[in-house]
Amino acid sequence: MIISLLDISLQQCFLYSIAVYGIVVSFRMMNFPDLTVDGSFTLGGAVLSSMITANYPPLIALPLVAVAGFAAGSATVFLNRKLGISKILSGILIMMVLYSINLRIMGKANISLLRLPTLFSSYDTDDALKVLIFGGISVVFLICLAYLSMTRLGLFIRATGDNEFMVQTQGVNTDWLFYTGIGVSNALVALSGAFVVQNQGFADVNMGIGLIITALAALIIGESFIAALVSIKKFVFSKKTIAIFSNTKISLLPWSTISELFSALTGAFLYFFIISICLRLGLAPTDLKLATGILVILGISVRLRGPMVETYVRGRL
């Protein structure tokens, strides 16, 4: 039973983790509380399912999904930067607009992909293989984002989230950085939606509702977990090892962001594992949101004060 529980939560966690990476980019790197994601998650599923029912191969649909997600994020940034609407309200507005757009794209509230060729349809029966493939996809995205945070572009994205004014005084138009960062964030969320749809075999116009809470819950649980690990690590490693480490160039890499990405992955796993155990123990599916809420509250209040995560995360939620 544990094995099948693990299989299912691993599958879900890997596919959803891509959305959580998106949340890391918007909430943590850019400091932009972007609520568009509820809409762009469904948007990804809608674009993919309607393209597959129109007989396009899934590999052609995926780039389009990413572009659609990027456009949704850009729309939110446009409302915020050019029209002066607050960040939260811009996100809510685009999320709402996307609900109608998603219905238009799908044509009906639910599209079944049964017996249609998706990326994963040939491994439908092999749960272990699916875990491997999904894990591979998730890790590829993690590596790409870790690389991004080490580039000049990633540095400026983080700097803009940290002190936009300073970046402007260095002669950079920060609007472009917001378009890039929030666009990438929503593209990731849309891709996550497209993967989830292919795994579950259907797209539903309501599938994105509450995604932001799920993703944030996962992220916060992961952050607390990693923070706990970091504070334990202090006892495991002697001061000398830490000193040697802190004098090498490796220490200059953006560890706070990289640890956020790992938090996203571990948090996604912990979240789906806890939820599936709760469901197996008899939690009514309607109480799921209650359980998620309690998890988030616990995750925040029980957070152990690891030094790195603590300073990075403080005051950001």
Binding site: L148, R152, F156, V167, Q170, T180
Partner: peptide
């Protein structure tokens, strides 16, 4: 950040 190079370079700093 203060180096005079384009911000959009997708290469490691």
């Amino acid at each position: 950040i203060s180096l005079e190079k384009p911000w959009w370079l997708p290469t490691p700093y």
